[in-house]
Computed example of a mutant assay.
Amino acid sequence: MTHPTPVNPNIAAAFAPPVMEARRWLQGVSFPAERPLINVSQAAPVDPPPEELRRVMADAALNRADAHLYGPVLGNTDLRDTLAQSWSRFYGASVGPERIAITQGCNQAFCATISTIAAAGDEIILPVPWYFNHKMWLDMQGIAAVPLTCGPDMVPRADDAAALISDRTRAIVLISPNNPTGAEYPAETLAAFFDLAKARGIALIVDETYRDFDSRDGAPHDLLGRDGAEDVLIQLYSFSKAFRLTGHRVGAVLTGAARMAELEKFLDTVAISTSQIGQIGAEWGLRNLSDWLAGERAEILSRRAAMQDAMAQTGGWDIVSAGAYFAWVEHPFRIPSNELAQRLVPEAGILMLPGTMFMPEGRGKQHLRVAYANADSAGIRAMAQRLADWQP
Score class of each variant (00 low, 15 high):
residue 137 W to V: 08
residue 142 G to R: 09
residue 97 P to T: 15
residue 144 A to V: 07
residue 120 A to M: 08
residue 132 F to S: 07
residue 112 A to I: 08
residue 112 A to W: 05
residue 138 L to N: 10
residue 94 S to A: 15
residue 107 N to L: 14
residue 112 A to F: 09
residue 119 A to F: 07
residue 103 T to D: 10
residue 97 P to F: 14
residue 113 T to E: 10
residue 105 G to C: 10
residue 157 R to M: 02
residue 161 A to T: 04
residue 130 W to K: 02
residue 140 M to K: 13
residue 138 L to R: 05
residue 145 A to E: 00
residue 125 I to M: 05
residue 156 P to E: 05
residue 132 F to A: 09
residue 159 D to K: 06
residue 113 T to A: 11
residue 94 S to H: 14
residue 106 C to N: 12
residue 101 A to M: 14
residue 120 A to F: 06
residue 161 A to R: 01
residue 96 G to P: 15
residue 105 G to D: 11
residue 152 P to N: 04
residue 156 P to I: 01
residue 109 A to R: 05
residue 96 G to Q: 15
residue 148 L to K: 00
residue 151 G to M: 03
residue 117 I to L: 12
residue 127 P to T: 08
residue 130 W to N: 00
residue 106 C to G: 11
residue 149 T to C: 03
residue 121 G to V: 09
residue 143 I to C: 05
residue 145 A to L: 02
residue 129 P to S: 04
residue 100 I to M: 12
residue 100 I to E: 07
residue 108 Q to K: 11
residue 139 D to K: 14
residue 143 I to D: 01
residue 153 D to Q: 09
residue 97 P to M: 14
residue 98 E to Q: 15
residue 151 G to L: 00
residue 144 A to M: 05
residue 106 C to W: 11
residue 148 L to C: 01
residue 152 P to I: 04
residue 154 M to C: 08
residue 99 R to H: 15
residue 143 I to V: 10
residue 102 I to F: 14
residue 118 A to I: 06
residue 103 T to C: 08
residue 151 G to F: 04
residue 147 P to G: 03
residue 152 P to F: 01
residue 155 V to I: 09
residue 147 P to I: 02
residue 141 Q to H: 09
residue 106 C to S: 13
residue 147 P to L: 04
residue 157 R to P: 00
residue 142 G to Q: 10
residue 109 A to Q: 06
residue 121 G to K: 12
residue 112 A to C: 12
residue 109 A to V: 11
residue 116 T to C: 11
residue 110 F to N: 05
residue 134 H to G: 00
residue 118 A to C: 06
residue 108 Q to H: 14
residue 100 I to W: 13
residue 104 Q to V: 11
residue 150 C to W: 01
residue 137 W to M: 06
residue 93 A to M: 13
residue 122 D to S: 07
residue 160 D to N: 06
residue 135 K to D: 01
residue 95 V to W: 11
residue 143 I to M: 04
residue 108 Q to L: 13
residue 101 A to Y: 14
residue 112 A to R: 10
residue 132 F to E: 05
residue 111 C to S: 11
residue 137 W to S: 08
residue 111 C to F: 11
residue 113 T to D: 03
residue 106 C to T: 13
residue 147 P to W: 00
residue 142 G to E: 03
residue 129 P to R: 06
residue 141 Q to S: 05
residue 104 Q to D: 12
residue 93 A to P: 07
residue 149 T to N: 00
residue 126 L to I: 06
residue 131 Y to D: 02
residue 105 G to T: 11
residue 117 I to E: 08
residue 161 A to P: 03
residue 146 V to E: 00
residue 104 Q to M: 13
residue 105 G to K: 10
